[in-house]
Nucleic acid binder design. Structure first.
Lengths: 338, 338
DNA sequence: TACGTTTGTTTAAACGTTAAAGCAACCATG
DNA sequence: CATGGTTGCTTTAACGTTTAAACAAACGTA
């Protein structure tokens, strides 16, 4: 490693004291009455020596790290890796560093990652909270840590969050199937207490009710994350026994993927007999003969909004707290340009 | 934010000097002759006060950040997001922080990200280098920065790297198609000067030659990253005009995805007429009627090995430099448990 | 001519660590 | 009983910043 150049070196070079250099290079030259002349000299020397500030020293002094922690469920899940990418890009532009952690939807892992990030003194968090993580997050908020929830939220928690309107999205998805004349519409969800999943179920119920379609509890399938394959197999088998369903609404991308796989392995032509609609984009649905309508989440906007909200909060520009709900778009029919 | 507790607080609590506390808490108690008794008191107090070391202060002093920079092509590409996940997990276990950056396969973006990470004083890098990034990386090495290349490498560069045996993998993939009796075997690759891509092409050539199959240059398709859809469309059209091919070997997951999409939109039953083999796993190939054989890369092992190599190097345990080549596995036939 | 103000700079202190050197008290040894 | 080596601790200094306070010189005003 090269011997790093510090403020000291520049100071020596120009022949002034260290603080003066600091003032100029952090843009506080004017307010500290540094003469234009020396300011120029300092800037020139800094450039010549290729000065790079020591962020550790700065953080030590200012108690700000310009780093945010982002805890998602699993960064190898396409939805989250796309989100991660957006956040990474946006943070890069704003000169913030991002540290990612995956919770794997487990409270215990979540807490470990949280602690890890806290020990790194991040300035704030963007979090897609897993089930049962509410107390940990309340704790953070109590200590005035900047937090923005993303994708998920908690009822009765006064926290910044950026989510979609899951109820509306779900109503619209279900409605799409109803409009096609289906009556026996199943939905596949995760067994979870998370509010946004509950909302998606609610949307399904509401759509059915509004359309005057009787709810058949047997058509509401809950998959356990611990045994997704097994549960899905059982579910698909049941949905297609005796009295087959007309349509299925999968509430997440992972559910859809596994569900479709099972369905197709049972009957290659199944998509000719049953209509399917899915939450989230998946580029490989194009492999299927029939286009599968899906609920497109505005991932880019979600990530950007969350980061803006967070940085505003960190830098003290934040209003009270905001719950931002973005719109989803039902993609149907024509293949969109990816 | 809570008022953070520091070594000072513990020292005051126990009634000893600050360095003593530092010695004990960093496990250097013995070698600094701290008595067992006071050591215990210090540990107890640290726990009671829930002491968390200030890593910035430590880094400032030690010039180590326990942070590594990981530059991949695009973290939203499944191959890289899986790799990222493995590295994240492994680093977490070893108490290292990871900062990711995506190069988007562009030298300019790569350099920016590199600079960003350097300014964060990372201790080392894991890099999947894009084309033309060789000079930047040579520079790093010249300054004795710890670097491990992953997935890609440069000929004639003395750098740690963890890659697969691309030639062998490619020979084996091509051979698989030859064994099935095909003669007109096309391959689709990216237009790129990267060595690992060249190796994959070489493997293809070698396999053909060994089997005594004449090479037809028209069957070697190079896709430009700037216009992948357009190029792919043209290529697929040509491959299936006049004298259709018997089989196609796609050299990356993204190529395969786009290629298959185009093929299927041209003819739903195309996979009954042409054999396909692909580099990299993709969970949604299961949507297809026919199983598609693929080259499985040992992503987990790649990530873990790269991190181990890097940390060894950072902590001075590194041998000269190592080029580690892992084996791929041709997955064919029976659907494997994902 | 004296005096407050402005201008441009320096000095001092601090952030929380770690590393080296210093220092007393005790012990064993010849 | 002086000598030298342990043992257990403290003091000092430093890492590279930022912030506040101090200061000297020049200036404007009366």
């Amino acid at each position: 490693m090269k011997p790093k150049v510090s403020l000291k070196d520049i100071a020596k070079e120009v022949g002034v004291s260290i603080p003066l250099v600091s003032y100029v290079l952090t843009g506080k030259g004017k307010e500290n009455r540094v003469s234009e002349e020396t300011a120029q000299k300092i800037l020139k020397a800094a450039k010549a020596l290729n000065y790079q500030p020591n962020l550790n020293a700065r953080s030590l002094k200012t108690n700000k790290t310009k780093t945010i922690g982002v805890i998602l469920a699993d960064i190898s899940n396409p939805f989250f890796s796309n989100l991660a990418r957006v956040i990474e890009d946006e943070a890069f532009l704003r000169d913030y560093t991002v540290i990612f952690g995956s919770s794997d939807e487990k409270k215990e892992k979540f807490d470990k990652v949280l602690e890890f990030l806290l020990s790194r003194q991040v300035d704030g968090f963007i979090i897609a909270p897993p089930q049962d993580s509410k107390p940990s997050i309340s704790n953070l908020l109590k200590q005035k840590t900047s937090v923005v929830l993303i994708d998920r939220y908690f009822k009765d928690m006064e926290a910044n969050c950026v989510i979609i309107d899951n109820v509306a999205a779900s109503v619209s998805a279900t409605d799409h199937l109803i409009q096609k004349g289906h009556k026996r519409i199943a939905t596949v969800a995760y067994k979870s207490k998370l509010a946004h999943f509950a909302d998606r179920c609610d949307g399904y119920y509401q759509a059915l009710e509004q359309a005057g379609v009787a709810l058949d509890e047997k058509l509401v399938v809950k998959i356990d994350r611990e045994s997704p394959k097994k549960d899905m197999k059982k579910a698909i088998n049941e949905l297609f026994s005796n009295e087959p369903v007309d349509a299925i609404y999968f509430q997440t991308n992972t559910l859809a993927e596994e569900g479709l796989r099972q369905m197709l392995s049972m009957d290659r032509d199944i998509l000719k007999k049953v209509d399917v609609i899915v939450f989230d984009q998946n580029s490989t649905y194009h492999f299927l003969e029939n286009f599968i309508p899906y609920m497109n989440q505005p991932i880019k906007k979600m990530g950007q909004t969350a980061l803006s909200l967070l940085i505003d909060d960190i830098e003290g520009k934040g209003k009270k707290y905001q719950k931002i709900q973005l719109k989803t778009k039902l993609e149907t029919g024509v293949e969109s340009e990816l």
